[in-house]
């Protein structure tokens, strides 16, 4: 029986390195054989206090394929939540109807709080700008699948490294696997010092760049994120830097054969569409991997693996 049985997944640091690997191994099994009715006696609650169609469908598809029944809401409109019920009371109530709660809520820290109130395990499907650990798990899965390993890789993170929560989580997770980090961002959107400290504390190296072209020849993974105009107080500044973090097919000359491009999606224009047909594009498969990883997490947490 897995050490993950009955556990919550709120923040990526809740799991150990070995537990990440365990989840990835189980996910691999579900990728080969996704329809296994091993949760047919379970009820999974998906509570989306803000809409996120992509994430909700991925979780619900995962639960469905395992035979679980699903209850919940896709946005709080028309529910008791909108009538002013506290998160505390909603969670206590839903705990009595379900075996596992998947929650997305714009309030930061809401998932940790829910896990302390709930009598069943809670999976965080995003708590505002704070954490979205299942995204990180599917990023790890995609990295391992494309590289054959998580160890000793050159990971380039590109775009908004300051506010991008997926970036912070992935850096923290990859600190367990002897990665070298190549950080490409406008100077205004550099990785926060607390995250750089995690890299240093793990005894690993990072390099900072402002031009994406510099990391093309060394990267095993290029993890692209969107640079939002709203992040810049001065629109002129945005205009000046916006092209420095855009990836086009012609820039990929001289990259490693094994290099793959990831993106948490949705993309806007930071990866031009001519990249999609290159062998390096992996972002659409990456999203599909989310279903297997979420199947693995639900199965392990509910003791079916």
């Amino acid at each position: 029986m897995s050490t993950l049985k009955g556990r919550n997944l709120i923040s990526i640091t809740d799991f150990s390195r070995d537990e990440y690997i365990e989840v990835l191994d189980i996910a691999e099994e579900f990728e080969k054989n996704p329809k296994q009715k091993i949760l047919s006696d379970k009820v999974v609650a998906t509570l989306f206090f803000e809409p996120s169609t992509r994430t909700r469908l991925s979780f619900e598809s995962a639960a469905n394929q395992l035979g679980a029944r699903i209850i919940g809401f896709s946005d709080p409109g028309g529910t008791s939540v909108q009538k002013g019920e506290t998160l505390h009371d909603t969670i206590v109530m839903v705990s009595s109807y379900s075996d596992l709660i998947v929650m997305r809520n714009p309030k930061e820290g809401s998932s940790r709080y829910a896990s302390e109130v709930a009598s069943v395990p809670v999976i965080n499907a995003g708590d505002g700008a704070n954490q979205h650990p299942t995204q990180c798990m599917l990023d790890l899965y995609s990295i391992r699948k494309t590289q054959g390993t998580l160890e000793n890789l050159n990971i380039a993170m590109v775009g908004d490294l300051k506010y991008g929560r997926t970036v912070h989580s992935l850096v923290q997770a990859m600190c367990n696997f002897n990665a070298t980090f190549h950080l490409v961002s406008p100077t205004e959107l550099k990785l926060p010092s607390s995250v750089k400290m995690s890299i240093k504390n793990a005894g690993l190296k990072y390099y900072q760049y402002t031009d994406l072209r510099e990391i093309i020849p060394t990267a095993d993974i290029i993890y692209m994120t969107r640079v939002q105009r709203e992040r810049f107080p001065d629109p002129m500044e945005y205009e000046r830097v916006k092209d420095s973090c855009i990836l086009t097919a012609s820039m990929l000359q001289g990259c490693k054969d094994n290099m793959r491009i990831l993106h948490p999606l949705p993309r806007v224009n930071e990866i031009t569409t001519d990249v999609d047909s290159t062998p390096y594009a992996y972002y659409f498969q990456q999203a599909q991997n989310g279903v297997y990883v979420r199947q693995a997490l639900m199965a392990a947490i509910l003791g079916a693996r």
């Binding site: 505390h88 930061e108 709080y113």
Partner: peptide, 14 residues
């Protein structure tokens, strides 16, 4: 008090 205005502890009695 948590300085983050978006924190759950500033939204509910936590």
């Amino acid at each position: 008090r948590c300085a983050n205005p978006k924190c759950i502890t500033n939204a509910e009695v936590v």
